[in-house]
Design a protein around this nucleic acid. Structure first.
Length: 114
DNA sequence: CCAATGACTAATC
DNA sequence: CGATTAGCCATTG
């Protein structure tokens, strides 16, 4: 199903915690192709695991909703986000900076932290 | 392989 | 802030 690249994108999306969102750029960077945002967008759009992969948690870099292929499109996307606690106002994520999820956010218990 | 496309992004007007 | 342009990359014909 799909290519390696696409699978990686879908997997990355699966790592997004509920109530949070991420951007195509973050995913692209996570995959090691920070300039392949277009390719990421295309891959997400081809995501056959619609409900399986929380692709609705992927928004634009400016906090705007972006696009969506399922249901009523962006409307459904916004509705699902709201269900998870992500408010959307005027097509933009409310408090985007705080809702944004970044990969590699993993806290590495620094051995000599400090 | 070349050309076109797309759930994007950043810069400019 | 809205509209346009150019850049970028994987996928598809």
């Amino acid at each position: 199903m799909g290519t390696e690249f696409q699978r990686r994108v879908w997997e990355a999306i699966g790592l997004i915690p509920r109530g949070r969102v991420t951007t195509y750029g973050e995913i692209a960077r996570f995959l090691g192709r920070p300039r392949a945002v277009r390719a990421v967008g295309t891959a997400v759009g081809k995501n056959p695991y619609a409900p399986k992969v929380p692709c609705h948690r992927v928004v634009r870099s400016d906090g705007s909703i972006g696009n969506y292929s399922g249901g009523e499109g962006t409307t459904t996307k916004i509705a699902m986000l709201k269900e998870e606690g992500v408010e959307v106002s005027k097509g933009r994520i409310v408090d985007f900076a705080r809702k944004l999820y970044r990969f590699g956010n993993q806290q590495v218990t620094s051995p000599s932290g400090n």
